[in-house]
């Protein structure tokens, strides 16, 4: 019994001392780290907005958005720390949008794209295609902003994500009426429309029949995305759009590219 006690006591004492020591050291270092990080991020913001002085953090469904103010307290723009899904997994990047709605900068903080191929997204070759675009311009992969050949998955992933972030920024910070995919069905005359957009790695063409201000049928005419993976998107998406009678439906997980392609195709058809 005695050595059982000794065992328990030893671990207790060592644990307690370690815990105490750590909290003391943390007490000293934590504030220093916090304000240094604050400084560091301020410098990063200055990279986008030279005269930023103060910033506020706001979190929208898991992503942080920093609205920046200059010395006079005027709102000069927003920087979002957001994520996109590329070939090699999650890409986290910062997107800077000015108060007028123009994209003024992109900075990739971490990505798993294959070195030499997918990492073109960190290079001007890709970023210049997007910088300067305004909130009003429709940004959809393959149609307005063509993807970088050879790194289609990475670049289309990025472009779709930028479109999504622009909508969020537009809605919450710039107070713009979100024009994104919400088409006003009542204004569209009856008839069948066709539209194409970029899916996972091929173009997706859809045929939409509208009658009486409602989408009555939605058919996917042609695509050759990866069989097996894209099938559940091809089967699932039309029904979701018809049920919701809008394009604000969430994508089929695991085949997000194809689903997004279908949404864009319908949007282009009815535009």
């Amino acid at each position: 019994m005695r050595d059982a006690l000794r065992m328990a006591l030893t671990l207790l004492i060592i644990g307690a001392i370690c815990g105490g020591l750590l909290s003391v050291v943390n007490g000293i270092t934590a504030p220093m780290i916090a304000d240094r990080e604050n400084q560091q991020f301020l410098q990063a913001l200055e990279g986008f907005f030279p005269d930023v002085v103060k910033f506020e953090v706001q979190e929208i469904n898991g992503e942080e958005f920093y609205s920046c103010y200059d010395a006079a307290g005027k709102f000069i723009g927003v920087v979002g720390k957001v994520k996109a899904s590329g070939y090699g997994g999650e890409i986290s990047y910062d997107l800077a949008v000015s108060d007028a709605g123009d994209i003024i900068g992109i900075r990739i903080s971490s990505h798993g794209e294959t070195p030499g191929i997918g990492d073109v997204i960190t290079k001007p070759a890709f970023q210049d295609r997007v910088i300067g675009l305004n909130f009003a311009d429709p940004i959809s992969a393959g149609v307005d902003v063509d993807t970088v050949s050879g790194a289609t998955v990475s670049s289309s992933g990025m472009i779709n994500s930028i479109r999504r972030v622009m909508n969020v920024v537009g809605e919450n910070f710039l107070g713009m009426e979100v024009e994104k995919a919400a088409i006003d069905l009542t204004k569209i005359a009856d008839g069948t429309y066709t539209g194409t957009a970029r899916g996972f790695k091929s173009d997706v063409t859809v045929e939409v029949v509208v009658s009486g201000g409602k989408i009555t049928s939605l058919e996917i005419v042609s695509h050759d995305d990866t069989p097996g993976i894209s099938d559940n998107a091809v089967k699932g998406m039309p029904q979701r759009i018809i049920d919701a009678q809008s394009l604000e439906v969430d994508v089929v997980s695991g085949a997000s590219m194809t689903s997004q392609g279908i949404i864009n195709a319908v949007f282009n058809a009815l535009k």
Binding site: I14, C18, L22, V25, N26, I28, T29, I33, R36
Partner: peptide, 16 residues
């Protein structure tokens, strides 16, 4: 426990 404590301390001190 001892090793982990040292590692965390090194991490914090370096970070600060």
């Amino acid at each position: 426990l001892i090793i982990a404590t040292f590692v965390t301390i090194v991490d914090m001190v370096l970070n600060a």
